[in-house]
Amino acid sequence: MRWIFRKAALSLFTLFCAITINFFLYRMMPGNPVDMMIQQFLALGYSYEEALTRVSMALSFVPTAPLHEQYVSFLKGVLTGNLGYSIWLATPVATILGYGIPWTVFSVSISLVISFLLGIVLGMHMAYRRGSIIDKVLSFYSSITTAMPQNILGFFMIWVFAIQLKWLPASGPYSGVDPRVFNLDFVISVLRHAVLPILTYVLTTVGGWILTMKSSTISVLGEYYVTAAEARGLKDRRIVTAYVGRNAMLPLFTRFAIALGFMFGGVLLIENLFLYPGIGRFLNQAVYARDYPLISGLFLITAVAVVAANFMADLLYSRLDPRIRFE
């Protein structure tokens, strides 16, 4: 139990460091984003004082105060959920995050789980049937799709399923329903709109899972304990699941945690192509608009996700592999 607390404390410390470094890096660079914001307002014809007031309103700190004071009020802001105002959208950054996070979490977690499970099943199958047609086809598929940009496949999906076949909507999170009324129509619309982004994500990432699972399974198949289980007359199904599968999956959980942690940054191309209002979509826009408070907030949420995913991976991994259980 104690090591869990130690891990949690370490995670929080990591997060703190990431936020701190991020703050100082930007504040201390010449031509830093805060100065740029002031320049932007000056260019619009505001006086220097007015520009400064506007920027101070957008940020959770006063840019002319001494650096350590800025830092303290920035930290206070993070802790109280005051992440400043988006300049581009004139909305609190926290509100934007609150709007974008659910869409990304919803679509990416479904995609990730599907991709992960498919990869495990197919990768294991290929390891058992090395050299079969399925193995060859999927190996080829995996090596081309892992190198393919997601928006190219996405374009193709839109062209086939939305434009030619007209089976599915091409973009947006939902359409023709009132988002304030949570009913079956709304759910169906949301699901239909999520199909193409999810499909694109799965088709471009499943190859990576397949190849990792295949090589992991092959190495487990060479282990003594698998032969030993066969010698004891265990049934094939038991050996495949409890002996081979269970052990071959272990290294994939680390990858899974990493993918989970990078979910907000990893779907930029897909969310922008499908005009899906998740974090990736806002990140893209924020960068174009040089919306520093929003970029900073998006960075914060990404850092939280990475650290949290790592922490969960540690907990989960210790459940799955008794060799790294500390009790």
């Binding site: 003594y224 304990y225 030993a228 010698a231 007359g233 049934k235 409890a242 002996y243």
Partner: peptide, 24 residues
């Protein structure tokens, strides 16, 4: 063959210490 193994003839392999599944 599956039913025969271990029931009729059992073997302790040369690398017997590796015979156990590490997660069980």
């Amino acid at each position: 063959l599956r039913r025969f193994r271990w029931k009729e003839i059992a073997i302790v392999f040369q690398g017997a210490f590796n015979s156990f599944n590490p997660v069980m």
